[in-house]
Protein backbone atom coordinates (compact mmCIF):
# COMPACT_ATOMS: atom_id res chain seq x y z
CA UNK A 1 0.00 0.00 0.00
CA UNK A 2 1.72 3.19 -1.16
CA UNK A 3 1.06 6.60 0.35
CA UNK A 4 -1.22 8.87 -1.66
CA UNK A 5 0.36 11.76 -3.57
CA UNK A 6 -1.42 14.10 -1.18
CA UNK A 7 0.20 12.40 1.82
CA UNK A 8 3.64 12.54 0.18
CA UNK A 9 3.21 16.25 -0.56
CA UNK A 10 2.11 17.00 3.00
CA UNK A 11 4.96 14.94 4.52
CA UNK A 12 7.42 16.73 2.25
CA UNK A 13 6.20 20.21 3.27
CA UNK A 14 6.42 19.22 6.93
CA UNK A 15 10.01 17.99 6.51
CA UNK A 16 10.99 21.02 4.43
CA UNK A 17 9.85 23.59 7.00
CA UNK A 18 10.94 21.54 10.03
CA UNK A 19 14.44 21.19 8.67
CA UNK A 20 14.68 24.92 7.98
CA UNK A 21 13.81 25.59 11.60
CA UNK A 22 15.88 22.89 13.25
CA UNK A 23 18.90 22.41 11.00
CA UNK A 24 19.30 24.79 8.03
CA UNK A 25 22.65 23.22 7.09
CA UNK A 26 20.79 19.98 6.29
CA UNK A 27 18.03 21.48 4.13
CA UNK A 28 20.24 20.92 1.08
CA UNK A 29 20.13 17.14 1.58
CA UNK A 30 16.53 17.32 0.33
CA UNK A 31 17.80 18.48 -3.09
CA UNK A 32 19.17 16.48 -6.03
CA UNK A 33 22.77 17.00 -7.22
CA UNK A 34 21.72 19.24 -10.12
CA UNK A 35 18.71 20.91 -8.46
CA UNK A 36 17.84 24.55 -9.16
CA UNK A 37 16.66 26.83 -6.35
CA UNK A 38 15.15 30.32 -6.67
CA UNK A 39 14.79 31.55 -3.11
CA UNK A 40 14.91 34.61 -0.88
CA UNK A 41 18.07 36.68 -1.39
CA UNK A 42 18.99 36.79 2.30
CA UNK A 43 22.13 38.87 1.59
CA UNK A 44 19.83 41.88 1.10
CA UNK A 45 18.35 43.10 4.42
CA UNK A 46 14.58 42.65 4.77
CA UNK A 47 12.79 45.77 3.55
CA UNK A 48 9.84 45.83 5.97
CA UNK A 49 8.31 48.78 4.08
CA UNK A 50 7.93 46.65 0.93
CA UNK A 51 5.39 43.88 0.37
CA UNK A 52 7.78 41.76 -1.72
CA UNK A 53 11.32 40.36 -1.31
CA UNK A 54 14.07 39.95 -3.95
CA UNK A 55 15.07 36.42 -5.00
CA UNK A 56 18.26 34.75 -6.24
CA UNK A 57 18.76 31.65 -8.44
CA UNK A 58 21.22 28.89 -7.42
CA UNK A 59 22.21 25.73 -9.29
CA UNK A 60 23.50 22.47 -7.78
CA UNK A 61 23.39 20.88 -4.34
CA UNK A 62 26.74 22.34 -3.29
CA UNK A 63 25.69 25.94 -3.93
CA UNK A 64 22.34 25.25 -2.30
CA UNK A 65 24.14 23.82 0.76
CA UNK A 66 26.37 26.91 1.05
CA UNK A 67 23.32 29.15 0.70
CA UNK A 68 21.34 27.56 3.55
CA UNK A 69 24.40 27.30 5.80
CA UNK A 70 25.52 30.90 5.26
CA UNK A 71 22.02 32.23 5.95
CA UNK A 72 21.19 29.78 8.72
CA UNK A 73 19.97 32.39 11.24
CA UNK A 74 17.32 33.84 8.93
CA UNK A 75 16.46 30.40 7.50
CA UNK A 76 15.78 28.93 10.97
CA UNK A 77 13.48 31.88 11.79
CA UNK A 78 11.26 31.36 8.71
CA UNK A 79 7.56 30.79 9.45
CA UNK A 80 4.95 29.88 6.85
CA UNK A 81 1.21 29.86 6.31
CA UNK A 82 0.23 27.70 3.35
CA UNK A 83 -3.15 28.70 1.92
CA UNK A 84 -3.40 26.41 -1.11
CA UNK A 85 -1.52 23.39 -2.42
CA UNK A 86 -2.07 21.99 -5.91
CA UNK A 87 -0.17 19.01 -7.24
CA UNK A 88 0.22 17.03 -10.44
CA UNK A 89 2.10 13.94 -11.61
CA UNK A 90 5.31 14.96 -13.39
CA UNK A 91 7.64 13.11 -15.77
CA UNK A 92 9.26 9.89 -14.44
CA UNK A 93 6.94 9.48 -11.43
CA UNK A 94 7.76 12.97 -10.21
CA UNK A 95 5.39 15.23 -8.32
CA UNK A 96 4.86 18.90 -9.14
CA UNK A 97 3.63 21.08 -6.26
CA UNK A 98 2.27 24.64 -6.50
CA UNK A 99 1.65 26.33 -3.16
CA UNK A 100 0.45 29.83 -2.30
CA UNK A 101 0.62 31.47 1.11
CA UNK A 102 2.56 33.86 3.27
CA UNK A 103 6.01 33.64 4.84
CA UNK A 104 7.45 35.83 7.56
CA UNK A 105 10.23 36.17 10.10
CA UNK A 106 10.42 37.73 13.57
CA UNK A 107 9.75 41.43 13.10
CA UNK A 108 8.70 41.33 9.41
CA UNK A 109 5.32 41.68 7.75
CA UNK A 110 3.77 38.59 6.13
CA UNK A 111 5.00 38.34 2.51
CA UNK A 112 2.56 36.69 0.09
CA UNK A 113 4.15 34.19 -2.28
CA UNK A 114 3.64 31.36 -4.75
CA UNK A 115 6.12 28.50 -4.95
CA UNK A 116 6.65 25.56 -7.27
CA UNK A 117 8.56 22.49 -6.12
CA UNK A 118 9.27 19.41 -8.24
CA UNK A 119 10.02 16.10 -6.47
CA UNK A 120 11.61 13.07 -8.16
CA UNK A 121 11.92 9.56 -6.69
CA UNK A 122 15.43 9.04 -5.30
CA UNK A 123 17.51 6.69 -7.51
CA UNK A 124 18.68 4.61 -4.51
CA UNK A 125 15.54 4.66 -2.39
CA UNK A 126 12.30 4.63 -4.36
CA UNK A 127 10.34 5.59 -1.24
CA UNK A 128 12.28 8.84 -0.91
CA UNK A 129 12.05 11.96 -3.07
CA UNK A 130 14.60 14.62 -4.05
CA UNK A 131 13.77 18.20 -4.95
CA UNK A 132 14.91 18.93 -8.51
CA UNK A 133 13.30 22.40 -8.82
CA UNK A 134 12.21 24.96 -6.24
CA UNK A 135 11.08 28.47 -7.28
CA UNK A 136 9.49 31.12 -5.09
CA UNK A 137 7.96 34.38 -6.33
CA UNK A 138 6.54 37.13 -4.12
CA UNK A 139 3.16 38.71 -4.86
CA UNK A 140 2.68 42.45 -4.29
CA UNK A 141 -0.70 44.00 -3.51
CA UNK A 142 -0.52 46.00 -6.77
CA UNK A 143 -2.34 49.13 -5.73
CA UNK A 144 -1.57 50.84 -9.05
CA UNK A 145 -4.73 52.53 -10.26
CA UNK A 146 -6.51 51.93 -6.96
CA UNK A 147 -7.87 55.21 -5.57
CA UNK A 148 -6.59 56.14 -2.12
CA UNK A 149 -9.33 56.95 0.38
CA UNK A 150 -8.20 60.57 0.09
CA UNK A 151 -9.30 60.56 -3.56
CA UNK A 152 -12.53 58.73 -2.79
CA UNK A 153 -13.82 60.75 0.16
Amino acid sequence: MGASVQDIVYAFLETYYQRMKKDPSKVSSLYSATAELTHINYQIDFDTSSDILPTIKLTGKENISKFFTRNNKKVSDLKAKIDTCDFQTALHSGILILTTGEIFWSGTPAYRFCQTIVLQPNADNKNAYDVTNDVIRFIPDNWIGFPSTNDVN
Binding site: L13, E14, L78, A80, K81, I82, E102, F104, P109, A110
Partner: peptide, 19 residues
Protein backbone atom coordinates in the same frame (compact mmCIF):
# COMPACT_ATOMS: atom_id res chain seq x y z
CA UNK B 1 -5.72 24.64 4.59
CA UNK B 2 -4.40 27.08 5.71
CA UNK B 3 -1.58 25.20 7.43
CA UNK B 4 0.93 26.91 9.71
CA UNK B 5 4.55 25.72 9.80
CA UNK B 6 7.03 26.92 12.48
CA UNK B 7 4.48 29.49 13.69
CA UNK B 8 1.67 29.97 16.19
CA UNK B 9 -1.63 31.67 15.28
CA UNK B 10 -0.50 34.65 17.38
CA UNK B 11 2.82 35.03 15.52
CA UNK B 12 0.98 34.92 12.20
CA UNK B 13 -1.53 37.54 13.40
CA UNK B 14 1.33 39.94 14.23
CA UNK B 15 2.95 39.51 10.79
CA UNK B 16 -0.42 39.80 9.05
CA UNK B 17 -1.14 43.04 10.91
CA UNK B 18 2.18 44.45 9.69
CA UNK B 19 1.19 43.62 6.11
Amino acid sequence: YPLLFNSTEEEYAVASNRR
